[in-house]
Amino acid sequence: MGLVVGVPGVHARRPAVTATDSARTAAAVTDDDRPGFEGAVLEARPGQVESGSRLHNQVLDFLIAEARLLDHNHYTRWLGLLADDLRYRMPVRRTVRRREGLGYDPTMTHFDDDHASMSLRIRRLAGDNAWSEDPPSRTRRFVSNVQVFTTDAPDEVEVESYLLLTRSAKDDTHFDLVPAERHDLLRRAPVGFTIARRTIYIDQTRVGTPNFAIFL
């Protein structure tokens, strides 16, 4: 086995990727909308921006600031980070055999939003009768494993990151966990970036939180 992301005693959820079998794995993952999954190798990928560089730091700062806005219930300010041509998706995941890839459904999603629909969601949450998040659940977004890639557009970068969202509400002593990988297209803005595209690849096939009245 090569680099396997997993827990001892539990089947690795992601394909074992080594230099020798990466080609086979890449062939099995056919959904073009999953950039990056084919290349989880140790070598830097084309366009990859070095950790610690100015650009990498700027992206990291942005993601941390964004998480902070959401964790502090500033939805309307968060909406301001979303580009007008936003595409915000979260595919449904299924348990499949390893040879069939990661199990993300090519068509069905939990979210498939543009800027207008996201605005409607946030306008609703901002009112006094959005019971699902009032009182709000308590969330914390831990962002890590950030990789940044340059693109053909000088003002845009692709970013892949891991997210661990913890959520509790009212008297909960346990936390709902929503671990995910996010693939973003960020665009330079006067301050920081805007989010032009985000695809959220969640780990769970059966989601363990009662709703997605929250954003990832």
């Binding site: 939990h110 498939d112 609703r124 019971w131 699902s132 989601v207």
Partner: peptide, 24 residues
């Protein structure tokens, strides 16, 4: 149709979110 139903129903549906507040 798919996108509009996702907006209202299911995990992220703005209607169903509030039902999820009542039932538990």
């Amino acid at each position: 149709v798919r996108k509009s139903l996702l907006q209202s129903f299911g995990t992220s549906g703005t209607i169903e979110q509030d039902d999820a507040e009542c039932w538990p």
